[in-house]
Every structure is written in structure tokens, then in C-alpha cells.
């Protein structure tokens, strides 16, 4: 059922790209749309094919996104997802999947920005530095601050927790009582999972809200590492 809803959308996209392909044979005359745009905002030396992928990546390094615009977008994402799932577990899984797609891109961009210009680019291969990258670099890249703590699970050796006392992305969200197990930080969990996967530390990552006095939105990102990671870590010791 859910997939039936998705396909018409995809077909709209594909016809859209086809119509833009139609312009290619007559490359001498630029498509009418781009000519109109050029006349509105003249960009120096901007050809008709100048798109988001041609812009310098470092230009937006320190730019910030409007929190309100973000809040409305995330709210719509949750409402869209909620219409297409049954149950809270499913909703969290979908949000996590959306986060995963953000995470793969964030990892690439983050590494490129941090290591791209350094003389000895390096890649973390040990577990603790990688967790520290998540806690500091990743959080800084997407939230503009570091996470509040990294903790190791007392019960299980392969579980680590990253704690954020006041996650910016769920600031305006009030979970209704009947859905109290839901944590919208599942998106963040997906981002973290993608990052760990990309660095070669496969793990299952979930988000749980653990309110504390003074921090009603406190969230724990629980990382359960794959056995292969623990075995490798043991061998590297």
C-alpha cells in the first residue's frame, strides 16, 4: 500500500527529468527557464548548467539554517511519515532511514572539509576516537554544538551512549501520551548509524528519550556495535 503511494511520485520525477533531457539536442539555445533566471539575477560567468553541485562546498561551511524553517520541515517529514506507517516502531525505522541518507552525505562532506586541506589526511580506525568524532565533529557539523556526554554501557561491552541534554531538532515537538515511547531523534540515530557504517564500524543505533530534572528533552543515542567490530578492536589491542 505504502509503496503504491510512492510510485506515482517517482514517475512524476522521471518525466520531469525526461523533459529536461529533451533540451540537450538543441544545446545551442538554452532552455527558456534558465534564460529567464539569468536575467533576474546575473551571476558572473554562470553558464546555464550551473547547479547546486557546481557551487564551492566550503562557502556554506559556517552558514546557518533557520531553526524555524527547519522545525516546520521536520514537522512535515514526521506527519508525512506517520501517514504511511503502522505503529511507533515503524515510524522510528522510517525516520532513521531518512537520517541514514543524511548521514552518508554528512560523513562525506565532513571528512572533505576537515581533512581535505590537511597535509596528512587521516581516518580514524579505532573505536573510541570514532565515538569522539560522532560526539564532537558530527554534532558540530549538524547541530552547531557538541553532544553532552559519551557513556559506556555497564551491562554490555558493545554498547555506547551519546547523550544530548537538549537536542535542537526536537525542541518544538511534544509527544502525545499515547506515543510516549516514540523518540523523534530516530533521525539523529539514523545519521549516526550511517556515519559509523561509513567509517567501517557497523552498528545498530537507536534513540531513546531519557528525561532528567531540568532537561525534559534529554535524549540518548544508543549504539550497539556489531560483533565484528568488537573482535577487530580486541585484535588491534
Amino acid at each position: 500500500m505504502a509503496y503504491n503511494n510512492v510510485h506515482p511520485r517517482l514517475s512524476v520525477f522521471s518525466t520531469g527529468s525526461q523533459s529536461s533531457l529533451d533540451y540537450i539536442p538543441s544545446a545551442g539555445t538554452p532552455p527558456p527557464g534558465s534564460a529567464g533566471r539569468q536575467s533576474v539575477t546575473p551571476i558572473p560567468k554562470a553558464g546555464p548548467s550551473k547547479g547546486i553541485y557546481d557551487r564551492p562546498l566550503n562557502k556554506t561551511r559556517n552558514t546557518e539554517v533557520s531553526a524555524a524553517a527547519y522545525a516546520f520541515l521536520f514537522s512535515e517529514m514526521i506527519q508525512y511519515t506517520q501517514k504511511r506507517v503502522h505503529g511507533i516502531g515503524d515510524l522510528e525505522k522510517r525516520l532513521s532511514l531518512l537520517g541514514y541518507r543524511i548521514g552518508t552525505r554528512t560523513l562525506e562532506l565532513m571528512i572533505w572539509r576537515n581533512e581535505g586541506n590537511s597535509k596528512n589526511p587521516k581516518r580514524e580506525t579505532r573505536l573510541l576516537p570514532v565515538l569522539y568524532v560522532v560526539h564532537t565533529q558530527l554534532w558540530k557539523a549538524i547541530f552547531g554544538k557538541t553532544a553532552d556526554a559519551i557513556e559506556k554501557s555497564v551491562e554490555n561491552d558493545d554498547e555506547y551512549m551519546i547523550i544530548d541534554n537538549d537536542p535542537p531538532i526536537t525542541k518544538y515537538i511534544s509527544i502525545p501520551k499515547e506515543m510516549s515511547q516514540l523518540s523523534c531523534s530516530a533521525l539523529t540515530a539514523g545519521i549516526v548509524e550511517a556515519l559509523l557504517d561509513g567509517l567501517g564500524f557497523p552498528a545498530r543505533v537507536t534513540a531513546h528519550s531519557v528525561p532528567k530534572e531540568g532537561f525534559p528533552l534529554r535524549t540518548t543515542i544508543l549504539i550497539k556495535l556489531d560483533r565484528s567490530v568488537m573482535e577487530r578492536e580486541e585484535a588491534l589491542k
Binding site: 522545525a71 512535515e76 517529514m77 514526521i78 506527519q79 518544538y172 515537538i173 511534544s174 502525545p176 506515543m179
Partner: peptide, 23 residues
């Protein structure tokens, strides 16, 4: 605007049940 309109679990024009708004 913050506690109700940005809350995905609030249906527009319906009675407001939002802890964030209450607080």
C-alpha cells in the same frame, strides 16, 4: 507558533494538547 504550529502531532484547528505549549 513554537509549541503548537511546529509540533507534528498537533492537528490544525483542533483542541491543543501540547506539553510544550503548556510549559
Amino acid at each position: 507558533a513554537d509549541g503548537v504550529m511546529k509540533n507534528p502531532f498537533q492537528t490544525p484547528e483542533m483542541p491543543i494538547r501540547s506539553e510544550g505549549f503548556d510549559a
